[in-house]
Design a protein around this nucleic acid. Structure first.
Lengths: 152, 152
DNA sequence: GGCTATTATTTAGCAGTGCTAAACATTGGC
DNA sequence: GCCAATGTTTAGCACTGCTAAATAATAGCC
């Protein structure tokens, strides 16, 4: 194992960093999932709602780009939020092809209230970030791993 | 937003940390998914294979616990790895209820070779970690967010 | 020594996410 | 007015994760 790690590090240090973050993130999400249950929304829906509240009335395509999913996936996420009365959709007055999404009072309330906030608050900040340097990345991986394990 | 963030931080700083990591992890995994494709295994399968190779011949239940999923989920993951010829299953000689899983040479080769290693290497280390302190956690969240966004 | 409770795994079926391909509607340029 | 490009939706797939219930085998008890 030590030799493998050494050869890996020598061959491609960036790959090592990516690996570490990947596994850490998988375990973190598994550990956090039960917390999501308290809001009654899955993580992708909560994350999308957060972006909608933050952005005002983004188009469906903007939303998909912000959340890094394809348009059909966002169509379905928005449909679910709409079915829960958390958002509404309406055509853009200048371009009938475009669908704009807005949060309802209920949607904003959900996002503001306790548990939802826990998961949603930072989804917004993520959109403003850029590449981190290698050292910071390696340290981040270690920290996330510890958290994921700590959650059990 | 500033006021909300302030009130949140004042009310429950731990919740803020959890939120940040959660969103960061979601976006990170989305960004890394395309890298997984190169090995031909999904992340949960690769992660399970990594634990199997590392552990030798864990039982299905041990594997489920290590990966933090329920036994039925692990049954299916192992079945998929077996179908790909990456692992084999056999009954425990002392207790016929138990199924032990072992990696094949092909499975070990896959894990050792290039791209697979990228994702699999750290899954093992995660099991040895414990809670990180608050400050480290907050910094980790920021770093992971940056990475996730940087990946696209 | 056979009954019973417990333990380990599997089967069945559901909900959710994410994808691509293709359909559809609308816009804008020629 | 036609045609290509743009934005969204529909259809259908693969995968993960869950719970509930079935199945199989062990271990304890009388």
């Amino acid at each position: 194992m030590a030799s493998r790690r050494a050869s890996l590090a020598a061959g491609d240090p960036d790959a090592v960093i990516a690996d570490r973050l990947h596994s850490a993130a998988i375990h973190l999400l598994r550990g956090l999932r039960r917390q999501d249950d308290r809001v009654g929304l899955t993580a992708p829906r909560l994350s999308a709602l957060s972006v909608i509240v933050h952005a005002g009335s983004p188009t469906l395509g903007e939303l998909a780009a912000a959340e890094q999913v394809r348009p059909p996936t966002m169509t379905r996420l928005v449909a679910a939020l709409e079915a829960d009365g958390l958002v509404t959709r309406h055509a853009d007055p200048h371009d009938a092809r475009i669908v704009r999404v807005r949060a309802t009072a209920k949607g904003r309330r959900l996002l503001d209230s306790g548990r939802a906030q826990r998961v949603a608050e930072l989804a917004r900040a993520i959109h403003a970030l850029d590449d981190a340097d290698r050292e910071l990345l390696a340290r981040a991986a270690t920290l996330v791993e510890r958290l994921a394990t700590g959650l059990r």
